[in-house]
Design a protein around this nucleic acid. Structure first.
Length: 465
RNA sequence: CGGGCUGUGGCGCAGCUUGGUUAGCGCGCUUGACUGGGGGUCAAGAGGUCGGGAGUUCAAAUCUCCCCAGCCCGACCA
C-alpha cells in the first residue's frame, strides 16, 4: 500500500490518471484541466470551505486576473519570491504594452491596491475578503494536482487595526476554517504551526501551515495562513484614521488552500484499489449496484435509491447491466465511493442486499428494510475510520530524535520531531541538502507558538511533495 | 540549466547486448458460443513502411552517424 518509490506516485494514482477519470494525463507545462470527477471533488470542498470562511466573517469578491508588473515590485520580498515563476504578458490589443502585466500568481498586490482606496477609517476595519480564483505559477516541475502550472484556489485577504487582531484572525482561519475542514471533512489529520523563516511566504512576517502526512510518509502542505504585518500596508500605503485621528498602517493577513487538496485527499487515503473518499466530500456517497435485472431487482434498487436520496444521501443507481458486474464494482471502487449496495436475485430471494464498505472492503448482507439505516451508519463509520487510520499511521511514522542526522534517517520513511534549538538555520540548510525540510514548528505539547523565536520549540521535519 | 532514459498495431510493452525464416505478447477491438454475485471463458479474426534520414552488410527493429519527438531525476513551490 502506497510504498514509497522515490518520487513516484503510487501505481494506482497513475492508473487513475491514465484512465482519464480524474484529470488530463499530467499537467504537462500548461494548464490544469480538471475533468468532471475531480472537479466534483473540488466543488464539494469549495462548498464546505466557503461555509466556514463566511462563518469567519469574510465575504467573497473577485479581482482582476492581470496585475501591472509595477504592483508586484512594490513589496521587495514579494517580487523576489515570485519573479522566477511569473507568466508575463507583453503584447495585447495588437501591440506591445508599455508596461507588461503579469498573470496573478497570488493577488496580494491587486487586492491591496484596492484596499488602499477602500480603507479610510477604523470603522472600515476589519476588512475581510475572500476570492475564489485561478492563479498561475510557472513552476519548474509540475506535479498533477500537487503543483500544477495553473491551479484553482481560494485566497483570503484581510486588514486589521492592530497586530493582535491580525494575529488572532490568521490563527482563527488556520483552526476554524482549515484544520476543521481538513479533519472533519477530508478526514486528514494535520499538524499546525509556524514555518521557519526559510520556508515563509514571500512578504509575510509569519506563515502558519497545515501539514499532512500522505500514505507514503511524505508531507504535504495543505494550506497556509500568513501574517503579513505591515509590509503590504506600507508598500501600498494602506492607512486608516484611528479613534484619535492618527493615520496608521493596517495589519494584514492572507491565507489560501488550493486544488492541491484534491491530490492530498487522494494521496492520504488511497490504497492499491484506488481512491477511498470520506463521505463528507464524496460526490457519490452510495452506489446501488444492480447485479442482474431479474425478479424485481431493478425495481428494488430504484426504490432503495429513492429512499436514500430522500434522506439526503448522494446516491447513484447503477443499472448498467450490459457492463459486467466485476467491471462496474472495480470502477466504483477506483472512484472511492464509500458504500455500495449490491442488489442481485440471489440475495433478494431472501429479502436481502449486500452492503460493501470501501474503507475496509467488508461485505455484509442486510435486509432490504434495514438497508437505508445501515447505509447511513456505514457512512458515518467510514468518515470516522479514515481519520482514525490516517492519524494512527502518522503517529506510528513520527519519532522523536535529538540530532539532525537522526532526523534525516527518520525522514526516509516518515517524520521526525527534533528540538529546534539543535537544528537552527545551519541544521536547516544541512537538512535541505538531503531533501528534508522543516515542515513546521510546534511547542513540545503540540501547541501553536506565538512566534518562531519562542524557546524550546520542536521542529517537525520530513520529506515533502 | 545540469544528469539519465525512451520512441516497435488504438494503448502498454518484449525483442536490440551477440544482425538471419513470416517482428512477438498483454489490454482493447470484431464475430460466435457459453456465461453473468469481483475487470469472465473458449474459439475464430482484423490491425505494424519497428520515430525520420543516411551509412555498413548478402542481410538491419537490432550495428554506426545525424535529425526529430517525448519522458524521468535535481534546483522552484499552494
Amino acid at each position: 500500500m502506497l510504498t514509497p518509490r522515490g518520487q513516484d506516485f503510487p501505481k494506482w494514482y497513475q492508473d487513475v490518471v491514465a484512465k482519464g477519470e480524474l484529470a488530463d494525463n499530467g499537467p504537462v507545462r500548461g494548464t490544469m484541466v480538471i475533468r468532471p470527477y475531480a472537479f466534483a471533488l473540488w466543488e464539494r470542498m469549495q462548498a464546505e470551505l466557503d461555509r466556514r470562511i463566511k462563518q469567519a466573517g469574510a465575504q467573497n469578491a473577485y479581482f482582476p486576473l492581470f496585475i501591472p508588473e509595477s504592483y508586484l515590485r512594490r513589496e521587495a520580498d514579494h517580487v523576489e519570491g515570485f519573479s522566477p515563476e511569473l507568466a508575463v504578458v507583453t503584447h495585447a490589443g495588437g501591440k506591445e504594452l508599455d508596461e507588461p502585466v503579469v498573470v496573478r500568481p497570488t493577488s496580494e498586490t491587486m487586492v491591496n491596491s484596492s484596499f488602499a482606496k477602500w480603507i479610510q477609517s477604523h470603522r472600515d476595519l476589519p476588512l475581510l475578503i475572500n476570492q475564489w480564483a485561478n492563479v498561475v505559477r510557472w513552476e519548474l516541475r509540475p506535479r498533477l494536482f500537487l503543483r500544477t502550472t495553473e491551479f484553482l484556489w481560494q485566497e483570503g485577504h484581510t486588514a486589521h487595526a492592530t497586530r493582535a487582531d491580525a494575529t488572532a484572525y490568521a490563527e482563527r482561519i488556520l483552526r476554524d476554517v482549515y484544520e476543521d475542514f481538513m479533519v472533519e471533512v477530508l478526514a486528514i489529520p494535520v499538524l499546525t504551526g509556524p514555518k521557519t523563516a526559510r520556508e515563509r511566504f514571500a512578504g509575510a512576517i509569519n506563515t502558519l501551515t497545515c501539514e499532512a502526512m500522505m500514505g507514503d510518509g511524505k508531507a504535504l502542505q495543505m494550506g497556509t495562513s500568513h501574517e503579513l504585518g505591515q509590509n503590504f500596508a506600507r508598500a501600498f500605503d494602506i492607512t486608516y484614521s484611528d479613534e484619535h485621528g492618527e493615520r496608521t498602517h493596517v495589519w494584514q493577513t492572507s491565507w489560501g488552500v488550493s486544488t492541491r487538496l484534491v491530490g492530498g485527499l487522494i494521496m492520504a487515503h488511497g490504497d492499491d484499489a484506488g481512491l477511498r473518499l470520506p463521505p463528507a466530500v464524496a460526490p457519490t456517497q452510495v452506489v446501488v449496484l444492480v447485479v442482474r435485472d431479474e425478479a424485481g431487482v431493478a425495481e428494488t434498487a430504484a426504490s432503495l435509491g429513492r429512499e436514500l436520496a430522500g434522506t439526503g444521501v448522494r446516491v447513484v443507481v447503477d443499472d448498467h447491466i450490459d457492463v459486467g458486474f466485476g467491471r462496474r464494482s472495480v470502477d466504483w471502487e477506483l472512484k472511492g465511493v464509500p458504500v455500495r449496495l449490491e442488489v442481485g436475485p440471489r440475495d433478494l430471494a431472501e429479502g436481502r442486499v449486500t452492503l460493501v464498505r470501501r474503507v475496509d472492503g467488508t461485505k455484509e448482507p442486510v435486509t432490504v428494510a434495514e438497508a437505508p439505516g445501515r447505509v447511513v451508519a456505514a457512512l458515518a463509520e467510514a468518515q470516522r475510520s479514515l481519520l482514525v487510520e490516517a492519524r494512527r499511521r502518522r503517529e506510528s511514522s513520527t519519532i522523536d530524535v535529538e540530532t539532525v542526522e537522526d532526523a534525516i534517517e527518520a525522514a526516509r520513511s516518515g517524520w521526525a520531531r527534533v528540538p529546534w534549538a539543535v537544528v537552527g538555520d545551519e541544521g536547516e540548510n544541512h537538512l535541505a541538502g538531503k531533501g528534508v525540510t522543516v515542515r513546521c514548528l510546534q511547542r513540545a505539547d503540540g501547541g501553536l507558538p506565538a512566534s518562531g523565536d519562542e524557546a524550546d520549540l520542536v521542529a517537525v521535519v520530513g520529506r515533502a511533495y
